[in-house]
Design a protein around this nucleic acid. Sequence first.
DNA 1: ACCTGAACACCGTTCAAGT
DNA 2: ACCTGAACACCGTTCAAGT
Lengths: 197, 197
Amino acid sequence: MQTRRYHHGDLRAALLVRAEQTLREKGVAALSLRELARDLGVSHAAPSRHFKDKQALLDALALDGFARLRETLVASQVSVGESFAERLGALAHAYVDFATGGAELLDVMYSVKHGPAASEELIAAGRQVGELALELIAEGQRRGEVRDGPAERISQPLFTTLHGFADLAVSSMLPLGVVEEGLDDVIAYMLRGCAPD
Amino acid sequence: MQTRRYHHGDLRAALLVRAEQTLREKGVAALSLRELARDLGVSHAAPSRHFKDKQALLDALALDGFARLRETLVASQVSVGESFAERLGALAHAYVDFATGGAELLDVMYSVKHGPAASEELIAAGRQVGELALELIAEGQRRGEVRDGPAERISQPLFTTLHGFADLAVSSMLPLGVVEEGLDDVIAYMLRGCAPD
DNA sequence: ACCTGAACACCGTTCAAGT
DNA sequence: ACCTGAACACCGTTCAAGT
């Protein structure tokens, strides 16, 4: 047993960690500020110093999610071949793995509920993920493996497909088991959509 | 003022109608069974006869949403040219319009939260929507405007893209204003992905 | 600055009892 | 069968007060 200080130390960070755990285990609906406070041994009013709202907590969770998603995607590119096909494949698998590995988090990240208030930051974070697709396309164009044209106009549809697959997989709207082989079809289809004439 | 009977008449249907209105106006988070009951002039315990759970209400709402989405998509095909490109364009616009016209509903439809319990029906409803894409592809193949191969393996990526775009648009993760012209790029990209060699 | 305790106005869900 | 009323165990949020 540790003696517990009056000040928690870093309640904000602790709340986020615990919240994501609960999110993963019991879903958004079961996420309660009061329970979080209980779990961390602080009063139920304590969280309000760090998150003005339950929504503010969710926003922070989503922001964190985007940061980690970005890291995951970047990491997927380090030890992979240089061809566009290989890089796209690695990116796609990484995105889908992230999604299926944390379905509830993805739901929160792309939830409509991020009111126009603090969502500025969130949308920027989301956009940063999309930019990875942009870089991928630009590089593919340099290599002559992707058709010419404004890179955003190719990367946007591509990212759209990637996200759509991940979202469908996560909401179990994809024929189960199809998630794995289905992704390969999706990747092939994306390659077609990006290929030079 | 009507005299109010003891029996509501069709409380179940009334709950669904009112719930979707609230969903549209104030979001899922603000949807409360007690408030619904208040609005309809019944006791707060009355809804439980028709929906064992708040989740059961949401599931019913989602099921309804899928049915209407299906109707919308079918309707989009009636007065449109016969070419694959035209039919796909019509379908895509219809899907995105449905999504942006009822963002909160789409969120509920594709939410992770439909527990494995009653979700059987929901997943079937979702799958029915996907089947429209399947028919589109099959017809396109007959016309020689879509490449050969198992239709599902082409329609699945296509539907994935469609849904991804709608979902991103709805969660405001798409560069605003890009939703309109962006869709055209996505349609062109889908056509590429489906085109014969 | 950070947290507590009490208070307020809500929830979802259940269950005996009424019609 | 369908609904009511009361009860239970929760919520989020606010705000004076404590350290």
